[in-house]
Simulated assay, not measured.
Amino acid sequence: MIEIEEIKINYPGADAWQMGDSPELASELADLIKKGIKTASCGSFASFQQVESAPKIGSYNIILDGQNVPVCVTRLVSMRLVRFCDVTEAFARKEGEGDLSLEYWQKEHKRFFTREGHFSEDMELIAEEFELVEIV
């Protein structure tokens, strides 16, 4: 099994992290990224502001599965601020989850942000798009 530090040799400054809020979801999302289905993600702007080293366009990320095992490397290609109620069908499809519909995206993200403790229809999100660089 390849170690995070070995990957960072080729991608200096890369952050390693899981997506989602459970090991099961982290593994599911990492697999969607590895398959090229998931090319976007989002998080609440409020949470984003609390992160010490915010991601920057062009930065590399090592995506971990639910057991903290590296799965792939992505590169952030775009970021924008968007309200929950303004997320488009196209962006929902890029998130790659469920049936790829906006309705599914809204239902699951409302549930996620409610669990996180702050949901509203007009909440601001950081919408990120990324490209798969390498499967490790």
Rank of each mutant, 00 (worst) to 15 (best):
M1L: 13
E5G: 10
E6T: 13
I7M: 04
I9H: 06
I9N: 09
Y11L: 08
Y11W: 04
D15R: 13
G20Y: 00
D21E: 08
S22N: 00
E24M: 03
L25R: 03
L25I: 10
A26C: 07
S27E: 04
L29T: 06
A30M: 01
A30N: 01
D31L: 09
L32T: 02
K34R: 11
K34Q: 07
K35P: 04
G36K: 05
K38R: 13
A40N: 04
S41A: 09
S41K: 00
F45M: 07
F48G: 05
V51I: 14
V51F: 08
E52W: 08
E52V: 11
S53L: 12
S53H: 14
S53F: 11
A54I: 15
A54L: 15
P55Y: 06
I57Q: 13
I57A: 10
S59L: 09
Y60H: 15
Q67E: 15
Q67K: 15
V69D: 09
P70L: 02
V73G: 02
R75F: 07
L81S: 06
V82P: 00
V82Q: 10
R83F: 02
F84S: 03
T88L: 04
E89V: 07
F91A: 04
F91T: 11
R93W: 08
K94T: 05
E95V: 03
G96A: 11
E97I: 08
G98H: 06
L102G: 05
W105Y: 10
W105S: 04
K107M: 14
H109A: 07
H109S: 08
T114W: 07
T114I: 08
R115W: 04
E116Q: 12
E116W: 04
H118T: 13
S120H: 10
D122V: 09
D122R: 09
D122Y: 06
E124H: 10
A127K: 04
A127D: 05
E131K: 09
E131D: 13
V133M: 08
I135S: 07
I135W: 01
V136G: 05
